[in-house]
Amino acid sequence: MEITARALWTLLHGLGFGALYLLACSGALVELYRSTASSASSESTPARERFLKTYLLTMTVLAWAAVLTGAYVIYPWYRAAPLPGTTDLSLFPQHLLMSTSATSRWHSLGMEWKEHVAWLAPISITMVTFVFIRYGRSLKDHPQLRSAVLTFAVASFVAAGIAGFFGAMINKYAPVQGGHTIQLRTGVEK
């Protein structure tokens, strides 16, 4: 059982940070909505508020970790240019996708959209976290501010969803491969 270093980084970026962020989004949206609703005063407690602040901070770290590993670790492998005359493009995912019309849109639409829209997620969730830490439950006293914050939280979810979807699909058609091989477990021959 083995995995290449590049595949491990991709796994960490997509599943470790990206997918975990997407999973956390639904919980954050519900809890943000509930804890700052005008009728929330009776059920919200300081401990619950503290929990949500920690939860949002963790999400912020996940969002930044996802885009930074994506842009500075995996993307250089994805966009690497092959030497002229190279016929095996398996180590050059962007060029592999662009080599046939059946897959070229995964790059020209999918990656081109993903590489930019993904950054709206950390920008938005950082703002959401800051505002909730600053205002806490008193955000319910500022209904218009609360609505704007919730809209940005939804936008963050949507942006991460678009990036996650295209990331998964691109990795299906042109996976990032190569690097040294990491042996996870040695099998026994039968």
Partner: peptide, 27 residues
């Protein structure tokens, strides 16, 4: 008006909008 003014929250919200828009325009 509530004790905590809305200025700080408004600054964060509009700055996030500016940052997102700057990203899109630069891209």
């Amino acid at each position: 008006a509530p004790a905590l003014t809305n200025g700080s929250g408004a600054a964060a919200v509009v700055a996030a909008g500016i940052g997102a828009f700057a990203l899109a325009v630069l891209a």
